[in-house]
Amino acid sequence: MIDRSVTAEGSAGRALRPTQALFRRLLLINGLLFSAATLVLAFSPATVSAPVQITEIPVLVIGLLLILAANAVLVRGSLAPLDALATLMQRVDLLRASDRLTERDHGDVTHLVHTFNTMLDRLEAERSESSAHALAAQEAERQRIARELHDEIGQSLTVVLLGLKRTVDRAPAELREELHAMQETVRDSLDEVRQVARRLRPGVLADLGLQSALHALSSEFGELRVNRWVDHDLPELSPDVELVLYRIAQESLTNVARHAGAAEVDLSLTVRRGQLTLRVTDNGTGGIEHEGAGIRGMRERALLIGAKLTVTSTVDGTDVCLRVPR
Rank of each mutant, 00 (worst) to 15 (best):
E192L: 11
D105I: 00
P58D: 03
E139C: 00
H215T: 15
D266M: 05
L28S: 13
V73H: 07
R170K: 10
G261V: 01
Q195K: 11
T102Q: 12
E289H: 10
L120F: 07
L322F: 03
I67W: 10
E300R: 12
L149A: 08
V230H: 04
G292T: 09
V75F: 07
E174A: 14
T47I: 02
L208W: 01
S131I: 01
M1T: 11
G317S: 06
P45F: 07
G222S: 13
S219T: 11
L85Q: 09
F221A: 02
T254V: 00
V193C: 10
N255V: 01
H150T: 15
T254W: 05
V113C: 04
T281V: 13
A181W: 01
L200K: 05
V226G: 01
A36D: 02
P202F: 06
R225L: 10
Q20A: 10
P51I: 10
L88P: 05
E152G: 08
R76S: 14
A171I: 04
A263P: 00
D319A: 11
L322H: 02
C321E: 14
E220W: 06
A84P: 01
R122Q: 11
H114S: 14
V324E: 02
E139M: 06
R198N: 08
L322S: 03
L243C: 03
T270H: 09
G77M: 12
L303P: 00
A263I: 00
R225G: 04
G209Y: 01
L74A: 15
T312E: 13
A307F: 03
L245H: 02
V244L: 05
R127I: 06
T47E: 12
R279M: 12
S5F: 08
L64I: 11
R122M: 11
L162K: 12
G10E: 13
T158Y: 02
A249E: 04
A70S: 14
V159M: 06
H215E: 13
